[in-house]
Nucleic acid binder design. Structure first.
Length: 377
DNA sequence: AAGCCGGGGCG
DNA sequence: CGCCCAGGCTT
């Protein structure tokens, strides 16, 4: 849904789109258009080739590959009849190699099922292997003038800023919403130009670090007017789930246990925990001891037994793989206080804040003498 | 809905 | 050097 100042078109066949965004964009493009080789042709084969090469690929990186591929495979027939290994040889270094496989598939398909002529509509193009919503819209508009808007990262960014669209662009519903907005903006008689324009505008003017000072659309741009340029597009921080391996040691001497407060800039800061050794992966006890000098010292003359523990603790952005051991240090062993650690009576430890992982660990091991009657269930 | 595929550019 | 890129396919 466009903001209210958008004058909605009454019928879809209207030929001129008067929206200030569209007018400004096209005016800008006529002064700033990049000269790119695939813009000199109407050949759907060359356009398709360029679009596949440019998927997830910067123009500067894809350009030499496009030129070479078009030279080696000037027609869809030549590509269809080529040995796939030859195609891969020329794709080498470009990445995303399934693109090459699908390119060959589609070339053979176009030759065998379509007499070497590419389908001429968005709906037919999107059926081809390696042709998704973006590429189908690009070919349909550039080669056949169909008024389908391309919606890529540039378009998400530009429309989010200009209209102040708060939708998370990583959300599954975002493509539909942004496509609907773009569909209302694209002029039926200038679809190809509009699509080329919005790509160049995203690359040259409304880039991730935009040049608003020289932008002809800034006067009507929501993000610029609100001084909220950095707020758009809204994009959920991808909280990559990191695997971490926590090895907890319940170190006991007499009736007391060794604990510390988490103070670093990390999860559970301000909460309390047992002696922890974090390892880069699952490790044998011997390896963990080697990693930690203090632990080696503590273990001299101590009895040790492995504990039941929650195997996996899932946080929004981390997976904690947990193992635990119980260490009983002889009363007569003198342990100089470890830096940052302190001894505590279990009943006092009960009063301190702990992570759910640690609470689960305790609950799983209430049979330990040290926890009897001192910890809540 | 989430994971995977690859390079290069950027701060 | 970690982060980003935002297209299409697979699971």
């Amino acid at each position: 849904m466009l903001p209210s100042f958008f004058v909605s078109l009454n019928h879809p066949m209207q030929s001129i789109n008067h929206h200030p965004f569209t007018k400004g964009l096209l005016t800008w493009y006529r002064q700033h258009a990049r000269e790119l080789p695939w813009r000199q042709t109407q050949d759907p084969y060359a356009i398709w080739l360029s679009e596949v090469v440019l998927q997830q690929t910067r123009v500067a990186q894809g350009l030499p590959y496009y030129l070479k591929l078009l030279e080696v495979f000037p027609t869809v027939e030549s590509l269809a009849h080529a040995d796939e290994s030859v195609l891969f040889r020329h794709w080498q270094g470009l990445g995303y190699y399934s693109r090459a496989r699908n390119l060959h598939k589609t070339a053979k398909l176009v030759v065998s099922d379509f007499q070497g002529k590419f389908p001429t509509t968005y709906d037919a193009l999107i059926q081809l292997p390696g042709v998704g919503p973006y590429t189908a819209a690009a070919i349909a508009s550039f080669a056949f003038g169909e008024a389908k808007p391309v919606v890529d990262g540039n378009v998400f960014r530009i429309l989010a800023r200009y209209f102040g669209i708060e939708t998370d662009i990583l959300h599954s519903s975002a493509r539909k919403e942004f496509t609907e907005v773009a569909q209302e903006l694209i002029p039926n008689d200038l679809a190809a130009e509009f699509n080329q324009a919005i790509m160049d505008f995203g690359s040259l003017q409304c880039s991730p670090a935009p040049s608003c000072g020289s932008c002809p659309l800034s006067l009507t741009c929501f993000a610029f007017q609100q001084k909220r340029i950095s707020d758009f597009p809204v994009k959920q921080k991808k909280a990559k789930q990191r695997n971490r391996y926590f090895n907890y040691f319940i170190v006991e001497q007499g009736k007391r246990i060794l604990i510390r407060e988490r103070k670093e800039k990390d999860i559970w800061s301000g909460l309390w925990e047992f002696y922890l050794v974090e390892s880069p992966q699952v490790e044998e006890l011997e390896s963990i001891m080697e990693m930690d000098e203090n632990l080696s010292t503590l273990l001299q003359g101590a009895t040790i037994q492995s504990l039941k523990s929650p195997k996996l603790h899932i946080l929004s952005h981390q997976k904690i793989h947990c193992r635990a051991w119980h260490i009983q240090v002889p009363d007569n062993l003198d342990i100089s206080m470890l830096d940052g650690f302190q001894w505590i009576q279990p009943e006092d430890f009960e009063k301190l804040g702990k992570s759910v992982l640690l609470l689960n660990l305790i609950t799983d091991n209430l049979h330990l003498q040290i926890f009897n009657d001192s910890m809540p269930r």
